[in-house]
């Protein structure tokens, strides 16, 4: 009983105390992230062992240490870095162009009911089309190359930004506009103090979708239309059966995805401090 009481006094909800004997005690922190890390390391280790001892075919599942070596050599000869930068550039340029057009149009459509009524049917018609499907047409018009890739990527960023921004503005509680009007706020002030911050959570959700879509689209488009970039690299590796290179590209793309999410988390806590406080 005495032990349990001391436990209650000192133990945080995340840690628990195990009594191995009367004298020795361990504090094990039940931190979810630590456990996830341990599981991840365990999986890698089992993969390594299984591939090394021939339980699984090292041809299809090369051991992680081989993949790491391959990444090292691809890094030193510059292939990985240049292809990563190419993919990053295509993705970001497409995102900035398509995303900012979507943002601006979304704000205007959210603000003006009349404008929204006119444009909405067009958005509804074009939006469901998988953007990868327009690539052949774009290549016919603009030729094979970076321009076509970035146009498709931009189209992929445009719609999630547009739709989320628009709905973000539309769902702002009408009372906020009444308050602004009552205090005779100028249109500029309404935009700055009501529309932008009021729709910001939804805009950020749109940005998240746009980032994921553009990453997917850039890699997919590179696979079918380019020999450069991470997508092109994967495709080349597949056609020449360089399995370790496929894995190397996948690792980099995974890191991309993780970085995107970290970036979004930082951006959210910077732009929406009022939402963080509400959830905590």
């Amino acid at each position: 009983m005495a032990h349990m009481e001391s436990d209650r006094r000192t133990g945080s909800p995340e840690s628990s105390r195990f009594w191995l004997s009367n004298k020795i005690q361990f504090n094990i922190s039940f931190n979810g992230k630590v456990i996830a890390g341990l599981i991840f390391a365990g999986l890698l280790l089992s993969w390594e062992m299984a591939a090394q001892f021939g339980v699984i075919s090292p041809l299809y599942f090369p051991p992680p240490s081989f993949i790491l070596q391959k990444i090292g050599s691809l890094l030193t000869n510059g292939t990985l870095i240049s292809n990563t930068l190419i993919t990053l550039a295509r993705m970001l340029i497409g995102l900035v162009i398509g995303g900012s057009l979507g943002l601006v149009l979304g704000l205007v459509m959210g603000w003006s009911d009349r404008f929204r009524e006119v444009i909405d049917p067009f958005v509804a018609a074009i939006h469901p089309l998988p953007k990868i499907a327009i690539l052949p047409l774009i290549m016919v018009i603009f030729g094979i190359g970076n321009l076509s890739i970035m146009i498709v990527v931009a189209a992929g960023a445009f719609f999630p930004m547009l739709i989320n921004t628009m709905s973000g503005v539309v769902q702002i509680h009408p009372i906020h506009f009444d308050v602004a009007k009552n205090y005779q706020a100028s249109s500029m002030k309404v935009f700055q103090r009501v529309i932008l911050p009021g729709s910001a959570p939804s805009i950020l959700a749109g940005l998240r979708l746009a980032l994921n879509t553009t990453l997917l689209l850039t890699v997919a488009v590179e696979m079918v239309s380019s020999i450069s970039g991470l997508g092109g690299m994967i495709w080349m590796a597949w056609t020449t059966m360089r399995i370790e290179e496929i894995y190397s590209s996948l690792v980099v793309i995974t890191l991309f995805g993780i970085l995107i999410n970290v970036f979004l988390m930082l951006l959210t806590s910077w732009l929406l401090p009022w939402q963080e406080k509400r959830s905590s």
Binding site: I175, P197, G198
Partner: peptide, 22 residues
């Protein structure tokens, strides 16, 4: 108003100063 009169994205200081700001 009854409720929702404050902007949730502004601090109390900015909310209360909103009239003066305009």
């Amino acid at each position: 108003f009854q409720e929702h009169g404050l902007f949730p994205w502004m601090t109390i200081l900015d909310n209360v100063a909103f009239g003066l700001e305009n």
